[in-house]
């Protein structure tokens, strides 16, 4: 599947309530599900939250994912 589809799938794993955005609290729910520490998850959140408003949108999330996939900050959208 495409990067956009994958990033939407992953977004939904994080956004369990289907709010349409991810908060730090949502991120910390992944503690125990993923082999990352609370500090790692904070770090991931800060890295993905490009505008620093405390909410991760699917756009921010997918741009982080495409950066991971391709090593560039080109938007997946």
């Amino acid at each position: 599947s495409t990067v956009l589809e994958k990033s939407q799938e992953f977004f939904q794993i994080c956004d369990t309530e289907g709010k349409g955005f991810i908060t730090r609290r949502d991120m910390q729910r992944l503690l125990g599900e993923l082999p990352l520490s609370a500090e790692d998850l904070e770090n991931v959140f800060d890295t993905l939250d490009a505008d620093g408003n405390g909410y991760l949108t699917v756009e921010e999330f997918s741009s982080g994912f495409s950066e991971f996939m391709f090593g560039t900050s080109a938007s997946a959208a």
Binding site: E9, F10, I13, L34, L36, V44, D46, G64, F65
Partner: peptide, 29 residues
């Protein structure tokens, strides 16, 4: 190895995060 650093860069932690999600998806049908 001079490229090995203690502690993870934000890039490294992001890669770790997405890799874990990929693994998680692969592991759950």
């Amino acid at each position: 190895d001079p490229n090995m650093k203690g502690g993870q860069t934000s890039e490294g932690v992001l890669a770790n995060f997405f890799n874990s999600l990929l693994t998680k998806k692969a592991g759950s049908p």
